[in-house]
């Protein structure tokens, strides 16, 4: 019978072995080339189609409600959506409900605008081809305020340019004038956008969320309160696939596969051992 110290030591070693295996599983696909094709899932397709069918010049409100903690999942999604908008000559209006989301909005807009001439042969200028509104305090109140007077809620954009008279916001007086909105959220903001935005001011709403939030959105898809959604890194990879622009999400899919398979194998092995021990009448160590 092992002493408590020996058991702790053993558990620590097992823990460190698991950590090493997980680290190896993430790095492996970047060293050994793997090719695992995949196809876009149903709700990702619906989201893509909802944006793709918009006419050039349509206003797409993008609310990037996440902070750097969710960067790995939602930043590729932000980039894919902005690329899609720029490719189709849609006018993205970018904002956030999170103070820390401002940096993410700015980074995504500037990166997407900078690469646009190379990717699509189109120059995109702030205030004309897109609007970076930035952050305002308020949450649900901000959405309600935008529903009545969008330019009153954001009197100036992120760069301190007045929104009144801004070409990118011409004809957009409230949320009712938006052609579509997409909320990329690491928290409960999708539900807030549904209740205080979509259901009050009647515009098509899509969502992209971290994988942790994704399962909670299915009830809203069935009731058509959401037109489509992207769940986690896989959702971002689906969008990149449909856009034919391989990015960080697509690059991450092989590593995602290997880590998931590793974890599945670990859980199955541990359970097999548990069941065998139980059949033999032993307690699990």
């Amino acid at each position: 019978m092992a002493t408590p110290q020996e058991q702790i030591k053993r558990m620590t070693i097992i823990r460190h072995i698991i950590y090493a295996l997980v680290a190896a599983a993430v790095v492996l696909p970047y060293i050994v080339k793997m090719d695992m094709p995949f196809s876009a899932s149903k709700w990702s397709k619906k989201m893509y189609e909802a944006i793709d069918k918009l006419e050039p010049g349509s206003r797409v409100l993008l609310s990037f409600d996440y902070d750097p903690a969710a960067e790995a999942e939602l930043y590729p999604m932000s980039m894919a959506l902005l690329r899609h908008c720029f490719k189709k000559d849609l006018i993205p209006i970018v904002m956030t409900h999170w103070p820390d989301g401002v940096g993410m909005c700015k980074k995504a807009c500037e990166e997407a605008a900078a690469e646009s001439p190379k990717l699509w042969g189109k120059e995109k200028i702030s205030g004309r081809d897109f609007a970076l509104l930035g952050f305002r305090v308020g949450g649900a109140d901000l959405i309600l305020n935008m529903g009545e007077n969008l330019k009153g809620a954001f009197t100036k954009d992120f760069y301190d340019e007045p929104t009144a008279g801004m070409a990118a916001l011409e004809g957009v007086d409230s949320l009712r004038d938006i052609d579509m909105a997409v909320d990329l959220a690491a928290g409960i903001h999708v539900q807030v956008w549904i209740a205080y935005g979509h259901d009050r001011f009647d515009f098509p709403l899509g969502a992209g969320t971290t994988a942790v939030i994704a399962p909670k959105l299915y009830p809203f898809l069935q009731t058509d309160q959401l037109v489509g959604f992207l769940g986690g890194l896989r959702g971002a990879a689906d969008y990149e696939l449909m856009l034919e622009q391989s990015g960080k999400a697509t690059q991450g899919m092989q590593a995602q596969s290997v880590t998931h398979v590793l974890l599945i194998v670990m859980i199955v092995v541990a359970n097999a051992r548990f069941i065998v021990n139980r059949l033999r009448g032993k307690q699990e160590a």
């Binding site: 790995a72 999942e73 399962p215 890194l233 960080k248």
Partner: peptide, 30 residues
């Protein structure tokens, strides 16, 4: 199902950091 998605989310964050280290710090070309 939530657990499955949570695993996916946490692994994605780790993948993000590995991508940063490999592509931005070490400048490895994919």
């Amino acid at each position: 199902a939530s657990f499955g998605y949570t695993v996916m989310g946490r692994m994605s964050l780790l993948i993000g950091r590995v991508q940063f280290l490999m592509f931005e710090w070490l400048k490895i070309k994919q």
